[in-house]
């Protein structure tokens, strides 16, 4: 018998890992953002279809290169932000996502941070592309954006140090 022990995932995480919602790319997306790096094992691309007049998220989807928790976090996030205004979506925290998943193991907190970090990057990019910034959008990066950036930088640094190649998702694209 294997000596490996599974992480204590909640039933919600397991359900969404087995049957993720909104998985897959979205060609008609208004904006997309990548967070994480395959080198560290987790990476997510988030696609948002935005009603530009109402500044509301019409639809969201994701692609994940990650663990079970990463897939579940991205899945629940894309469900949660559907129909929300960009401001409402911006206010979502990684703790909320973790809570809605029934709690994540501590070493998997970063999966929720990654999902919310990708969302915040996408929202910021949406406004950057249009050369505007609403009052509610802080000039400085949010906690999740900073944590995602730190993780990406750390992996890049380690890969450079050991002479390996890394394909980072740190840069926004769209």
């Amino acid at each position: 018998m294997s000596t490996r022990i599974p992480l204590p995932y909640s039933p919600k995480v397991l359900e969404l890992f087995r049957n993720p919602k909104n998985a897959g790319p979205m060609e008609e997306a208004t904006v997309k953002a990548i967070a994480g790096s395959p080198a560290c094992g987790d990476m997510i691309t988030l696609y948002l279809k935005i009603d530009e007049e109402k500044e509301t998220i019409v639809r969201a989807s994701f692609e994940s290169y990650g663990c079970a928790a990463n897939i579940a976090a991205a899945s629940i996030l894309t469900e949660k932000i559907k129909g929300k205004s960009l401001k409402e979506a911006w206010e979502i925290t990684w703790q909320e996502i973790s809570d809605e998943l029934g709690g994540l193991p501590v070493i998997k907190y970063h999966c929720s941070i990654l999902a919310v970090g990708a969302l915040k990057r996408a929202i910021r990019k949406y406004y950057d592309d249009r050369g505007t910034r609403p009052e509610w959008l802080p000039e400085k990066p949010s906690r999740e954006e900073l944590q995602v950036l730190e993780e990406e930088k750390m992996i890049e640094y380690m890969y450079k140090k050991f002479g390996l190649q890394v394909q980072s998702g740190g840069k926004q694209s769209g």
Binding site: A23, P25, P38, F62, E63, S64, Y65, I71, Q167
Partner: peptide, 9 residues
């Protein structure tokens, strides 16, 4: 890189 929708068999 392949993604979730294509691969999760």
């Amino acid at each position: 890189m392949r993604w979730l929708t294509e691969y999760l068999e």
